[in-house]
Every structure is written in structure tokens, then in C-alpha cells.
């Protein structure tokens, strides 16, 4: 168990790569971190601070990428995806200029900072565009491994601020895009990012009630359909769990998979409805999840009800 921040795991790995490759360029929209301080101090020629200017970050990054640089952009997740969405669309999606967009603050991990800093739309929006891959990071092992991947097209790395226990071993091949993190028989929880930890806890609690349910962590979008079709053979019920607005994100992707392939699987989607919308609730992430019905008790109740129905 590593217990380090996903952000530090990611940037520490990038530091090691950048120290060996002067074409690696990190563009920060005025974002700091201890791991970035080291990078900035030791590799100043490979560090560009554009200021609080995300549109320009994508544009400068695109120019650098066209010049052969390996570009990493870094800012708070809602800002580096949504503020500069049209730059991402034209440069990264339409023109397929490759760069790595690193957004910190997945879901509600900015907790008491409120809805401007929560990001509940980015997976839907980023997965709607061709030529963009999303890695919704689950733990620090994955963060480090994703940092080490060779990218061919634009990758959005969605980093949580909360420090979770590592659930993956360092030799995991993350190119699969999804993994069975708890074996199950005919029911699975399909989760992404921080909710994989919540799903594992829920599965364990349900075990105590003799309800056997597995957990699949879906961390890459587009989802690996082949892997899921194979893994879900014979499965009757799945519950998707995400700290994200429901339209268009994980649950939708799973629903598309089921419909497109005519699978005899019942799906229950747990996430955030537009009816609940944005919230000004404070007192930590679990309190906010209570409002949205994603807290431990609500999850247990909803999953149990669906699986035993």
C-alpha cells in the first residue's frame, strides 16, 4: 500500500522521464505541487507556466507538440477540460495533435470548494470526441503507470485529490482499460475512479449479507468492449457507480454496450442526476455524497435492492 497522492505519483514518474528526455515539456496553468516544485527547479527549460490561461495552455501545447515535443498540460480538472474545450476539440480531436491533459480534482474531490471546482461533466464531454482517451485514475500505481505510457493521441488523465489505498500491483498492464478487482459470479459492480474504492467496500459489506458481487474497475474511455463482453458472459445484473452526472458517462457507456450487443443484462445506474444538480453542501466528500445518494448507506441499500429484486 503506497498511499501517496495520485498527482505526486504521476508527476514523479514524469520527472524521471523528463530528466532523460528534453523533449518532455510540462505546461502548468499556474498549478503547483511538491512534485512539481522539484520538476520546476531541476528542469526549468522544460517547464512552462502560462498563467491562469487554459485556452492558451492548449494552444501553446499544440504548437509545441507540432514541433515534436511531448506535452503535458496541468490544471484543475473542470478548467483544463471545459474552459478550453473548443481548443481541445479543434487541436486535439479534429487535428489529432497528441498531448496529455492532466486534470486534478476528479468528481467532488475538491470537496468544500463547491460546484465551480467539482467536475461532474468531463467524462461525458471528453468521451464524446474522437481521438481522445480518458484515464480516470483509481490509485497511485495506475497514476504512475499511465504517466509512463507512450501516447499516440490526446489523453485526458483525470486525477483524484483524495489519497486512496493502492489496489493495483506495479506489474499491472493498464492498457486493458478495465480490470476485475473483485471476482464475482453473476452480479458485478462497474465503477470508475474514486467509486471503485466505494464499490469494493460495498461489495465487502454485501458479502457479510451473503450477497456475492464482483467489482470491475473501468478506468479507460472509450471502454474496452471486448474485455467487458468476455468478462460479463453469463452475468445477469450490473450496477454502474460513478461520481459524475449520469447522462453520457460510465453508466451510459455500459448501457450502450448492453444495447448494442443485445446482452441479457439488467443495468442499474448509480450516479448524479440532473434533478439533484449542483450542490452547496459542505463538511467533506461523504456529506456531499449523502446529498447525492452516493454515500455508503445509500449505495448498500440501492445495490442490495437491485440485486435481490
Amino acid at each position: 500500500m503506497n498511499n501517496i497522492a495520485q498527482r505526486d505519483a504521476f508527476w514523479n514518474r514524469i520527472y524521471d522521464i523528463a530528466a532523460q528526455d528534453r523533449n518532455v515539456i510540462l505546461i502548468s496553468a499556474d498549478m503547483g505541487a511538491p512534485s512539481l516544485d522539484k520538476y520546476r527547479k531541476d528542469l526549468p527549460a522544460q517547464f512552462v507556466n502560462v498563467g491562469i490561461a487554459e485556452q492558451n495552455a492548449v494552444l501553446i501545447g499544440s504548437g509545441l507538440a507540432l514541433k515534436g515535443k511531448k506535452v503535458y498540460l496541468y490544471a484543475i480538472a473542470p478548467f483544463i477540460t471545459l474552459r478550453c474545450l473548443e481548443q481541445i476539440r479543434v487541436e486535439c480531436s479534429i487535428m489529432n495533435i497528441p498531448m496529455t491533459i492532466v486534470g486534478v480534482g476528479a468528481g467532488m474531490s475538491y470537496q468544500d470548494s463547491g460546484p465551480t471546482h467539482h467536475v461532474l461533466e468531463d467524462i461525458t464531454i471528453m468521451r464524446s470526441m474522437p481521438n481522445i482517451t480518458i484515464h480516470n485514475i483509481t490509485d497511485s500505481v495506475m497514476a504512475s503507470a499511465v504517466a509512463g505510457m507512450n501516447i499516440k493521441n490526446t489523453t485526458y488523465v483525470r486525477i483524484d485529490r483524495e489519497v486512496f489505498p493502492d489496489i493495483y500491483s506495479p506489474d499491472t498492464d493498464f492498457r486493458t482499460g478495465a480490470a476485475v478487482v473483485k471476482e464475482g459470479k453473476d452480479c458485478y459492480l462497474l465503477s470508475t475512479g474514486c467509486m471503485t474504492h466505494a464499490a469494493l467496500h460495498a461489495a465487502k459489506r454485501l458479502e457479510g449479507k451473503s450477497i456475492d458481487v464482483g467489482v470491475i474497475d473501468i478506468y479507460t474511455f472509450p471502454i474496452n468492449e471486448e474485455f467487458l463482453l468476455e468478462t460479463l458472459k453469463g452475468v445477469r445484473k450490473v450496477v454502474s457507480i460513478e461520481e459524475h452526472f449520469l447522462p453520457g458517462a460510465l453508466g451510459s457507456a455500459v448501457g450502450e454496450l448492453i444495447l448494442d450487443n443485445g446482452l441479457p443484462i439488467k443495468l442499474r445506474r448509480l450516479g448524479i442526476t440532473h434533478a439533484k444538480g449542483f450542490c452547496y453542501k459542505y463538511g467533506g466528500r461523504e456529506t456531499i455524497r449523502e446529498y447525492y445518494g452516493l454515500d455508503r448507506e445509500s449505495l448498500d441499500r440501492e445495490i442490495e435492492r437491485f440485486l435481490t429484486d
Binding site: 492558451n56 504548437g63 509545441l64 507540432l66 514541433k67 487541436e91
Partner: peptide
């Protein structure tokens, strides 16, 4: 902006 990135 892309031109400035190439120049950089």
C-alpha cells in the same frame, strides 16, 4: 496561439 507554441 499554436503559432506561438511552435515559436517557443
Amino acid at each position: 496561439g499554436v503559432a506561438a507554441g511552435i515559436a517557443l
